[in-house]
Design a protein around this nucleic acid. Structure first.
Lengths: 220, 220, 220, 220
DNA sequence: ATTTAAGCGAGACGGTACGTCTGGTCTTTAT
DNA sequence: ATAAAGACCAGACGTACCGTCTCGCTTAAAT
């Protein structure tokens, strides 16, 4: 319990007193996932989680600061190895497959949570920050490996900041996901990645020169 | 009042009965903006709007279904001509200036509302839909003009769907805005637009062929 | 309109402007009665009356101070000669018949209004006062005639205040009506009047001497 | 808390969970009484009770269905032994003293509540029913003891139903209390009881024969 | 074996916003 | 001038959910 608030490897504090019930944690996360597959994050109440988990509200609040973080924990625990990080030998193919896989997941009930965490994050910095640290960066680090391979193989320009590359590939689709203004179909993934690779400018048009890379928050 | 629920050009129903108080509408929108500059959408209450506007809660609920839509209305009414749609003769420059302007606005108190509407939209389809129709599409239509000019001048490949182009340009920055994982500095706008124009792939690398254009939402 | 607030014989002011619609008054009273037969006074709204009468709320508030007084007006207008004031030659029979008739009426939908006016009157002195003046005293004056006849015929002790006599006869039944603690059946009327005439004390028991009459608010 | 909804002798459920705050209940009732002494039942709001009691509105709604029943509860809790049930050896004196005491109380701020409960009861059967069960019947049972003694001592005719006797004694005064058409002075109590004992009919007048006794509510 | 501190279930509690309702007033246009 | 339509204000309503709290019971390490 409390992946979030505690060091995951903290040596289960073997002091006095009753020990944490492992079933309780599992039960809470399971119940939360169950509910999240049926209702939106906003519609779910701590009460409902507690009831379904057969656990008291007190216990939940003891280990998580609020419902949103319970949900994030549940989300993270169910995310392990759901999305592929392909290695086909082609960066373009890798990114296309990955984007397609991610987009497809985002359309599923649980995938919708992605948007809901970002949504809650708009008014709760804590959850947004945790979402970044524990979900987003992990994903981006994995994707950065694909980028690195592409750079090494001479498929991707090394002078473009990896942060920009990743945002260019995932940003547009996430934008569509969040506002619903564009299609999330399978083909769109390929079309977008293709456009990102080839650029939208005509080859002869030379005004658009790529500036030199710059340091950013976090990068390889 | 009720920009949202009524046709803007409706012939102000001059039938019987007391007319809608124009001051009331203006007052509500003004009060809402005032509050939104200081607090987040979530923190604001209908009561507070009513009180500050010197209007009764009943009146607010009569014309708007809930506070979110009041805020959207207020947002829209204050948006007119806040963001420039430049026409420099260069699509690259146009998009760069525009993205910079937009990004800068999004960092302002009122600009933060953009993310908050999307956030509320994740659990309230009505607001998301209205946000798209009345804000997003308007912006995109304007931006599409810039794109069109670029295509005509031979600066932008005409075979790429304009929807993708727009998402490629704005999506990454909005992604950063919403999750806070990347910089929103002035230079980033240019770097992103540059990358979008030039593409991330090496010129010689030919696997990334651009597919044929497609229409918004539906596709072949 | 406005039996209550206006002098009934006021010369329909034939000055400028649109004349008062007599139909409006009739329509309001009729609509009110219609509603009062189906719902309790509390459940009825001015709005509903206006709507059913095809009249605007304003008009109602122009002629009556509030819904309760509209209802009282409607009640009074429908009361004319609904309850008998018998004259059988026997005071006992007169009162019995009268009480039976009154009780029976009180059990009807419209009769229930009696209690509802008293109820509203507990928190609105105006309606209680009007109810007394325009309904109660009228009834009591009529009943006092029956009492007078009984006294003249030597059936009723003349030394007991008529106010007390009337309250003794009607009070118990009204008490039952308002609290619902006792039966309102036909036979009860006779039993009560009989008890009132004969007294509950044993004939020989002489402690209960009737005091001399005293002046009270209103009497013959 | 919840005298109304729970058996008073319920063995204070000492099961799991936080125990009901006894101060909360007491505080609510006390605050309610305080307010009821200053304003009418109708004028008091749940909010005001909550605020004055230093208790949340939720808690009030948890234990009472609405403010009227809170007030009834408060009323009942303050009623214990406020009204005397005399035993002078004379039924006539007993009833006179009792009626005088009751009438005097009914003129006090709290006593006015009596009428207000009956008023609310006209549109809310629940409160009327509870008022009967928990207040009226208790009083009548006590008064019936006085009647019983009178019967045994040969002061009161045993052939008259006790229900009628009680209504004859209290009904007239309550009628006056509720409609305000008659005096509630001290002397009136004696005059009324005297009239009830002696009867209003002349001794010689023999038409008014007392019918056989009957049981409460149902009858032959 | 007995402390004793923590975990835990149950559920009461304060707080706050919600969206609804009703009473009564005010404003505009039509008659 | 009066009516009809209906916008408006004021403020109470009862509900929902949040996160905290107080119990009494259970568990297991420390004594």
């Amino acid at each position: 319990m409390g992946q979030i608030t505690e060091f995951p490897f903290a040596p289960a504090n073997k002091c006095r007193g009753r020990q944490r019930s492992v079933e309780a944690e599992a039960s809470v996360l399971k119940a939360t996932l169950y509910l999240l597959e049926r209702k939106s994050l906003r519609e779910i109440t701590t009460e409902a989680i507690a009831q379904r988990a057969g656990v008291s509200k007190t216990t939940i609040y003891k280990w998580w600061p609020n419902k949103n973080l319970v949900a994030l924990d549940a989300y993270l625990s169910s995310m392990t190895a759901r999305v592929v990080m392909p290695d086909t030998g082609s960066a373009f193919k890798d990114f296309t497959l990955q984007l397609r896989s991610v987009t497809s997941f985002y359309k599923s009930p649980l995938g919708r949570l992605f948007g809901q965490f970002i949504a809650e994050g708009q008014s709760d910095p804590a959850i947004l920050s945790l979402f970044r640290e524990r979900f987003l960066y992990a994903r981006r680090d994995a994707a950065r490996v694909m980028w690195q391979r592409g750079v090494m193989r001479g498929e991707i320009r090394k002078e473009i900041d990896s942060e920009i590359v990743l945002d260019l590939i995932y940003g547009p689709m996430i934008f569509r996901l969040l506002t619903g203004h564009g299609s999330l179909a399978e083909d769109d993934s390929e079309a977008m990645v293709a456009a990102v690779f080839a650029g939208i400018g005509l080859p002869g048009y030379k005004e658009a020169k790529v500036p030199t890379p710059r340091r950013r928050q976090k990068k390889s």
